[in-house]
Amino acid sequence: MTDRPAISVENLWQVFGANAASAYDEASGGPPEEIAAKLKAQGLIPAVRGVTFDVAPGELFVVMGLSGSGKSTLIRGISRLVEPTAGRVEIEGEDVLAATPKRMIELRRSKIGMVFQHFGLFPHMSVIDNVAFPLKVGRMSRKERHDKVRPIIETVGLAGREDAYPRELSGGQKQRVGIARSLAGDCSVWFLDEPFSALDPLIRRQLQDEFLEIRKRLNTTIVFITHDIAEALKLADRIAIMRDGQVVQIGTPTEIVLNPVDDYVREFARDVARGRHAKVGSIMQGGTEGIGPDDPGLSPDMTLEDALASCMKLYEPVPVRDASGTLLGAVHPKDLAKALQVEQG
C-alpha cells in the first residue's frame, strides 16, 4: 500500500490536430519516435510522446525542459485540462482519465491544486475571494470559507491584504495568492506550472525558499514544471528532463549533474557548478580498505564542494560517517576532484 506511487503516468500521448485520436490509433505500435514521425507526416502535432513516470507520495518531482518541449502540455494532460490522446494517468490509485466529469470536479475541489505561470487570478475578486474560490464552488458558506482561508493567506505572507484586488498587487504577491488558492482545498497532489518564471530573480529566489518551507509542512506530492535548471536542482527530489515531447532522463539532481545521459542533458548540466548539487554519497565507496589516518568529518549528504574544501591536502581515502558517527564508507579525494571537473568540449 505504501509503495503505491501517488501519481503514475504511463505512455501518455498528447496529439493536436484534426482526428488526432484515430490517427494515433493507426500509427501506434513501435517506438515513440516512429509513431511521432508518422503523425507529423499527416500534419498533426505530437506535443507529448509516450511519457511514463511515477511520483512517490510526498515527492517533489520536477519536469524540466526548454519551451516547446511539451512540459506544459504534459501537466495539462495529467490534470486533464486538455484531454490526452492516449495513455494512462493514476492519481493515488485512481484512473483519472476514466473519471466522469462529476468525479473530476470532486477531485479538483478536494485533491488536486494547481498554480499557473501567469497566476490566473480572477480580476473581479479580492484576494480572499480568490483564495476561497475552490471552497465557494464546493458550496461552503461565506463565513466558513473565509475563516478557513485566513490562516492560508497568512502562511503565504499576505495577511492584511485580504481585501486587495489582483490589479493592486505586485507579481510576487499575485503568485502568493495563486499558491494560497491552490492550497485552499487541502490538496494532496499539487501541480505547479512554471510558478516563478514570470517573476524577477530576487523575488523568485525568495518565493522558492518560502515554497520549500510550505512544502516541508504539507507533505503533498508535487509535480513542478520549470525551464530553469538551477531551480530544478535546487528544489527537486527527482528531475525528469524533456525534449521534443519525450522524457530523456529521470534522476536525482546529483545523477543529472554527474551522469547526464546524452549531450542534451549535458548541455544543461554544463553551466551548473556541480560541487553545489552533487552529494558525497554519490561517489562514496562501500568498503573501508585503505582509509588513511585523517578524518575530516565527511557525511553522505555533504556537497562535493564542501567535502573537497575539507580534504584539500589529503591524498588517501577518507572515511564517511553518518550523524551518529557510524562508518559508512570511504571517499578518495582524487575522485572528489575528478567528479567536480567540468568536462571540456
Binding site: E106, R108, R109, I112, V137, G138, G178, F191
Partner: peptide, 10 residues
Amino acid sequence: EVKEAGVMSG
C-alpha cells in the same frame, strides 16, 4: 489561465 484556474478549482 484564468479559465483554467476556474476548472482546476473544481
